[in-house]
């Protein structure tokens, strides 16, 4: 019995380890959230976005602390106006990944040097600014393309060009 249940667990985990399954589940879950909760507010194709959902959460915190009135998407703004909280997707992702990493003993502290922290800090700031220029991270971009937004296809092509440039730079650095 014990062996059986551990086999089952392994079987399920082998599916969870397939990005193909994860992608299909994210697409389904994002569409389901809109189907259930669109009355709370738009925009469309807003079920999952790391950039926009982080923006809603941090702007809510910033507004609460400073009394300012930074923008939140209607989906979050209406929830806040009703006395509850904005989207908490990002907290969910962090906690879900910590739980999985702990259960499978894959949690390991990895430190960097001061130079790398500086690069990642500035990189994070710039990444978010450019992602919000697009109104999407690569995830909401995928949702928007699935929704039939052709403008989002320009974003995907641009991301591919950016990745291509990034690879060239990385390869050149390795040669040097």
């Amino acid at each position: 019995m014990v062996a059986n249940s551990s086999d089952e667990k392994k079987g399920l985990d082998s599916y969870l380890k397939m990005p193909l399954v994860g992608g299909a589940v994210i697409g389904f879950a994002a569409a389901l959230i809109q189907a259930l909760l669109f009355a709370a507010g738009g925009p469309q194709a807003y079920g999952f976005c790391v950039a926009c959902h982080s923006r809603d959460l941090i702007n809510y915190v910033y507004n609460s602390l400073t009394g300012s009135n930074l923008f939140l998407a209607p989906f979050s703004a209406n929830a806040v106006a009703a006395g509850t909280l904005p989207v908490l997707t990002i907290i969910g992702v962090l906690v879900g990944a910590i739980a999985a990493a702990a259960l499978y003993k894959e949690f390991r502290v990895k430190k960097g040097d001061a130079k790398s922290y500086l690069a990642y800090g500035i990189g994070g700031i710039l990444f978010m600014i450019f992602a919000l220029c697009m109104g999407a991270c690569p995830y909401r971009l995928a949702l928007r393309i699935g929704y039939g937004d052709l403008v989002a296809v320009f974003g995907l092509i641009a991301i591919i060009i950016g990745i291509f440039i990034g690879i060239k730079i990385a390869l050149k650095r390795m040669e040097a």
């Binding site: 985990d13 969870l16 380890k17 397939m18 990005p19 399954v21 994860g22 589940v25 994210i26 879950a29 994002a30 959230i33 189907a35 259930l36 909760l37 669109f38 009355a39 709370a40 507010g41 079920g47 999952f48 959902h53 989906f75 979050s76 209406n78 929830a79 106006a81 009703a82 509850t84 909280l85 904005p86 989207v87 908490l88 997707t89 990002i90 907290i91 969910g92 992702v93 962090l94 906690v95 879900g96 990944a97 910590i98 739980a99 999985a100 990493a101 499978y104 894959e106």
Partner: peptide, 29 residues
């Protein structure tokens, strides 16, 4: 399916559940 008054209350709960699922998947895959 869900009226606005209820839907707005479900926004944080639904999105945190979504996040937990995606975080788990993201870590495993």
């Amino acid at each position: 399916l869900i009226p606005k008054e209820t839907a707005v209350l479900l926004v944080p709960i639904a999105t945190i559940i979504l996040g937990l699922v995606i975080g788990w998947f993201g870590q495993r895959s």
